[in-house]
Write a protein that binds this DNA or RNA. Structure first.
Length: 585
RNA sequence: GCGCCCGUAGCUCAGCUGGAUAGAGCGUUGGCCUCCGGAGCCAAAGGUCAGAGGUUCGAAUCCUCUCGGGCGCGCCA
């Protein structure tokens, strides 16, 4: 609808230009926006105000000329010039009825567009280290990333969803060591468990699997395992302690058994994460392994390319990337003194790989605590000779849970965090998905568990799903009464609906496609959530004010058409957010 | 100390690339209602958009500074 008004304005501009009333410079792309105040019509443009300066004419004068030059159109009921020089558009009733007909005609496609032109976009999200179950922080990244991906797809991009699996780093070695130590304990050894090792119960479970598969075959006396290992904190350095311990375990077990322990841990946890996300309605096209990146030589290749271009140097036995040359605060190590490449080196290779795969746009969804990482990864892309602006890093702030008005305490240190699975069990997948995207990503999220669980109107998810179920119920009632809905007759008699609630509802439905486009381009699923809440409210208001199943068939069919269109838009919007649209509740 | 994000109604938050008298939900107050499916409906009160400068026809929105909150500043991931 905005587009059509924009076209009319462009025609008016061209007409005035042809008449010599406006200079070449005035041929701009007009901006059309929805008005806040109904007294200002439905849409307005500030075109005349923006043209005042280049043409050195009074805005109101330009506005009058433009209004006069606008071509006739059935969409527009009335045009007026107001305020300092706004042009206000009052649309005709039929414009809104058209929107309802369009919803019915397009069904699940309503709101989708081809703006993206099929261009490939890669969206990477969650990518939590497979060292433990997903917690509620990851959940927000999952819900947000999945919704952003859905939105981009809906507006015509070819979206590739990806999870980057950090299966090669030091943290994984720490996990493998943790698992082995738990195994030893199950063998009856008394193990001084390192402060830096993974504490969660799941580590026991994986240790138990090893014990089940290998009995005591892998057992070594604790004294031997800890032989030559420097002391743990607080007396010693916990990092040196765990690193030495990993080396001892690796030596004792030998490469094959060590690898088996490592993979057992990795696979168990990854399977858990996959299952968790799948149940959460989050699916990926690819689980991209860091190990495969190393194995394929991509890391070496990325470093070689940086070296060739003169962006690497050696200092203190390590290899550094001169990221300061590309706006970073300090230079970064890519190969440690001990010869191991850093996580950052893998990440450079991964992002190089993404761009090599031909994505014009690459989106990373990260927790906000990683924001300091953005400049160095962009620096790396620039240093490789790529365009860093192809990468968009979307930062998601933390979620804080509230139960009974009290903040739910969480601490990663002791393993006392709330897992995503626990949250899903408590409030359900739908409420979790919805609440996670209810706030814009860069806003801290206060997650009210009681509200999310409530089956009352103040719970927005419930109110929206309820509106959907209510329409379905009306149609069931219709059948019970032995009546049919004549779709065509309904669509043809929408002009019978002129109650203010009906007009508001039609306007809301008409706005949906614009909203989806905006939300997609701005990566803001919260706009969809807010829209749906308002739409459901508008629907309930209408429902309470009017009977649908009336005697007059034409009126009944028209009302049912509007109800069905509302149901369709609610279903479409919820689908974008990964929330179900139940037919009964 | 430096960097990033945030600060809007009692609470939780919207406010589109700067636009007209700053909005929603919940809560509060006052009326009304009880009908397809149960969340009722209508109205009112409630704001120094953290504060101070600046940019301009116009600033919650852009720039600078101050205050307050969160996060980050490893040869960790």
């Amino acid at each position: 609808m905005k587009e059509r008004l924009r076209d009319l304005l462009t025609q008016a501009l061209e007409r005035l230009h042809a008449d010599g009333q406006l200079p070449e410079a005035a041929l701009v792309r007009p901006q059309v926006e929805r008005t806040r105040d109904p007294a200002h019509g439905d849409f307005a443009t500030n075109l005349a105000l923006t043209l005042a300066r280049p043409t050195r004419r009074k805005p109101r004068e330009i506005a009058e000329a433009l209004a006069a030059a606008l071509p006739e159109n059935a969409l527009v009921h009335r045009v007026e010039v107001a305020g300092p020089g706004f042009i206000n558009f009052f649309l005709s009733e039929s414009a809104w009825q058209d929107a309802v007909r369009e919803v019915l005609a397009r069904g699940t496609d309503y709101g989708r567009s081809v703006q993206g032109g099929g261009r490939p976009v890669q969206v990477e999200f969650v990518s939590a280290n497979p060292t433990g179950p997903l917690h509620v922080g990851h959940g927000r990244g999952a819900a947000y990333g999945a919704s952003v991906a859905n939105l981009l797809e809906a507006v015509g991009y070819r979206v590739h969803r990806e999870y980057y699996v950090n299966d090669a780093g030091r943290q994984m070695d720490i996990l493998a060591a943790s698992v082995y130590l738990r195994y030893l304990e199950l063998c009856g050894e008394e193990v001084p468990f390192p402060s830096n090792a993974y504490q969660g119960d799941y580590v026991w479970d994986i240790g138990a699997t090893l014990h089940r598969n290998h009995g005591e075959d892998w057992r070594y006396p604790v004294a031997e395992v800890f032989e030559g290992v420097p002391p743990d904190a607080p007396e010693g350095d916990k990092e040196a302690h765990i690193d030495a311990l990993i080396e001892r375990i690796r030596t004792l077990l030998g490469p094959e058994r060590y690898r088996e322990a490592f993979d057992e841990a990795l696979n168990a946890i990854l399977a858990n994460i996959r299952q968790d996300l799948k149940e959460f309605g989050v699916v990926y096209d690819d689980w991209f392994s860091e190990r495969s990146l190393v194995a394929s030589g991509a890391v070496e290749r990325a470093l070689a390319r940086l070296r060739e271009r003169g962006h690497l140097y050696e200092k203190d036995g390590a290899v550094w990337f001169r990221s300061t040359a590309f706006g970073d605060e300090k230079d970064r190590v890519v190969v440690r003194e001990n010869g191991q490449t850093t996580y950052f080196a893998s990440d450079i290779a991964y992002h190089m790989n993404k761009l090599e795969r031909g994505y014009e746009r690459v989106i990373d969804v990260w927790g906000a605590d990683h924001h300091g990482y953005v400049p160095r990864i962009k620096a790396a892309l620039a240093a490789l000779g790529d365009d860093p602006s192809k990468l968009d890093v979307l930062l998601v702030q933390f979620a804080v849970l509230y139960r009974g008005g009290e903040k739910v305490q969480m601490s990663t240190r002791s393993g006392e965090f709330v897992t995503l699975r626990e949250l899903r069990r408590e409030v359900g997948n739908d409420a979790a998905r919805f609440f996670y995207v209810l706030r814009k990503a860069e806003q801290h999220l206060d997650f009210d568990l009681d509200l999310a669980r409530a089956r009352t109107a103040d719970n927005p998810v419930y109110a929206i799903q309820y509106a959907h179920a209510r329409v379905c119920s009306v149609f069931r009632q219709l059948q019970d009464k032995g009546l049919d809905w004549d779709r065509a007759q309904g669509a043809a008699h929408l002009h019978l609906l002129h109650a203010p609630q009906e007009r508001d509802l039609m306007k809301a439905l008409a706005r949906y496609p614009e909203l989806v486009l905006e939300a997609a381009l701005a990566h803001e699923p919260h706009q969809v959530a807010h829209f749906l809440r308002d739409l459901a409210h508008a629907f309930h208001t209408w429902y309470n004010a009017h009977q649908f199943l009336v005697e007059d068939a034409r009126l009944r069919n028209a009302r049912l058409a509007l109800a069905e269109a509302t149901r369709q838009v609610i279903a479409n919007g919820l689908a974008l957010l990964g929330v179900s649209a139940p037919e009964r509740m």
